[in-house]
Design a protein around this nucleic acid. Structure first.
Length: 502
RNA sequence: GGCGCUAUGGUGCAACGGUUAGCACGCGGCCCUUUCAAGGCCGAAAUACGGGUUCGAUUCCCGUUAGCGCUACCA
């Protein structure tokens, strides 16, 4: 942590996803923490694709991961780098370890090794009274190939006895007994005529973190137990380990690791559903991190300003969708309208409802609608919006004349047989209005209701269905104002005849 | 099984030896009201358990329990 202060002008962090799946919310949170840390310290963010497992790796998934990061607003200064293209670097590092005695050629078949069939007490080891060691130490590490003639892999030669320690910015000082650390594989054995195969995770990560000058490794706590291996590797390669910061995991409602059966775990699904990226970011940032006080509505600039590894929690956090939805509605309502408009614009474009004259700085369309109209309309609509697509579905009648009236809304508010006649009368009354504003519409509507001897609420509710097709909408007279006199009158006339037929 | 990490209402976080244990989501009620939201007010709801240390433990230590992680020629 002292390091972080000293190095603050040259902080370098990375996000290193593996393209074996989409961008998971856990990965997204890790990416976000790295990014917030980098931006807070005015450091560099690096994107590295860890695709060293040709078997599981699906190159086409990289696109989705990058798309997800972009949507999240997480950008990077260097990369993406692909580990599959850096194989020579890892082979050279593995050979260096071989040369300096910190690694050995292992001839054991993978399945036999993992099963412990080749386990033998390493030299120098004294049998412990407490019981046998649990990790395999095969004879290859002492220069006695267990399976002569087989293609070897390169394993790290973990020291016998002693401990390996490191300081974690989140979990504090950690110490692991070397006798619990297995002789992990650095380089896979070669296939066909190649001498060696691709790098394994530990080697690739460490070689790149050294090579890319990473100062802080911020990653999931599932790597806490891997860290001593990496620290050993740093030393073997003659490098100083970085500052580690392990962040707790994200769990599902049942406290098990978040997975598909908990619902959407793919960040791109939240984008598709129509969450606002900034709201999603705010929600994610508060999962396992706290600025210390009680504030929760923290816009990205606040997040960057306040983020620190000291505020990261050590407890796994449950992904709570209702809270995410709450954040989304908060952003929908509290964002300065001009910050919200681009998102709404994208949604309207996606659904084909967008009109070019609604862009800023463009003259109004033939119906008089322009950017200012859009801003007023969105502002009116937003307290009732939950997700972006609601603008094009629920609020469709505000942006298009091609809308339908909801059947249950009609059942509910057009039940009274007087409705068609009332709507027709209202159309007439509103049609002759010289002034088109909230109060004029209000007075006119209440006058029609009074003249007909019905409660204003009856007419108001029926009118809402007539002009926007929904049982739920913003206050009626405000709605009339943004819709405009001509549209309101036309829709009332339309509805009057339609309601009569029904 | 071994090793490790964690433990405050249902959920996310505060309180970093002394508070009537605070905030938010969700839940219930009331107010507002033209539908539905939003908003305002009120309420129910927590320090896992057992030992220590201390004048005093949510907070420090040990144990138990539970959850999670690692234990691959996956990352």
């Amino acid at each position: 942590m002292t390091e972080s202060r000293q190095m603050s002008s040259s902080v370098r962090v990375r996000f290193a996803p593996s393209p074996t799946g989409y961008l998971h919310v856990g990965g997204a949170r890790t990416a976000l923490f790295n990014w917030l840390f980098a931006r807070h310290h005015r450091g560099a963010m690096i994107l590295r694709i860890e695709d060293t497992d040709a078997e599981r790796n699906k190159p086409e998934l990289v696109e989705g991961i990058i798309e997800g990061l972009r949507w999240l607003g997480v950008d990077w200064d260097e990369g993406p780098f692909y580990q599959s293209q850096r194989t020579e670097l890892y082979r050279a590092a593995a050979k260096k370890c071989l040369a300096n005695g910190s690694a050995f050629l292992c001839y054991c078949p993978a399945d036999k090794y993992a099963g412990g069939d080749y386990a033998e007490p390493a030299q120098d080891e004294e049998p412990k009274a407490g019981g046998p060691r649990r990790v395999t130490r095969c004879s290859c590490r002492d220069g006695k190939p267990s399976t002569p003639g087989a293609k070897p892999a390169i394993r790290f030669k973990v020291p016998v006895g002693g401990t390996t320690q490191f300081a974690d910015a989140v979990f504090g000082e950690r110490e692991f007994s070397n006798d619990e650390i297995e002789d992990f594989v650095l380089l896979r054995s070669g296939k066909g005529d190649e001498e060696f195969g691709q790098s394994m995770y530990q080697l690739g990560a460490v070689v790149d973190d050294i090579g890319m000058g990473i100062t802080h490794v911020i990653r999931g706590a599932d790597h806490l137990s891997n860290t001593p291996k990496q620290v050993l590797l740093y030393r073997a390669l003659g490098a100083q380990p970085p500052v580690f910061g392990h962040v707790p995991l994200i769990l599902g409602r049942d406290k098990t690791r978040l997975s598909k059966r908990h619902g959407a775990t793919d960040v791109n699904m939240y984008r598709a559903e129509g969450f606002l990226p900034e709201a999603f970011r705010n929600f994610l940032a508060l999962l396992g991190w706290s600025p210390g006080g009680d504030e929760e509505f923290l816009r990205t600039k606040d997040l960057i300003q306040r983020f620190s590894l000291e505020g990261v929690s050590r407890t796994n956090a449950v992904f709570d969708r209702p809270k995410l939805e709450w954040f989304n509605t908060q952003y929908l309502q509290r964002l300065p309208i001009e910050d919200l408009l681009p998102e709404v614009g994208n949604e309207l474009k996606r659904s084909g409802l967008w009109k070019p004259e609604w862009a800023a700085g463009v003259p109004p369309g033939p119906d008089g609608r322009d950017h200012a109209w859009l801003a007023r309309t969105v502002d009116l609509l937003r307290p009732r919006i939950r997700l972006l697509p609601d603008f094009s579905t629920w609020a469709r009648a505000f942006f298009s004349d091609d809308f339908t009236r909801d059947a249950t809304a009609k059942d509910k508010f057009w039940k009274d047989p007087k409705v068609p006649e009332l709507l027709a009368k209202l159309a007439d009354a509103l049609g002759i209005l010289k002034e088109w504003n909230h109060d004029a519409c209000d007075h006119s509507t209440r006058a029609v209701a009074e003249a007909a001897g019905v409660k204003a609420a009856l007419l108001i509710n029926a009118t809402r269905v007539a002009i926007v097709g929904q049982a739920v909408a913003p206050p009626l007279f405000d709605t009339m104002v943004v819709l405009g006199q001509q549209r309101v009158v036309r829709r009332l006339e339309e509805a009057a005849s339609g309601a009569a037929k029904a």
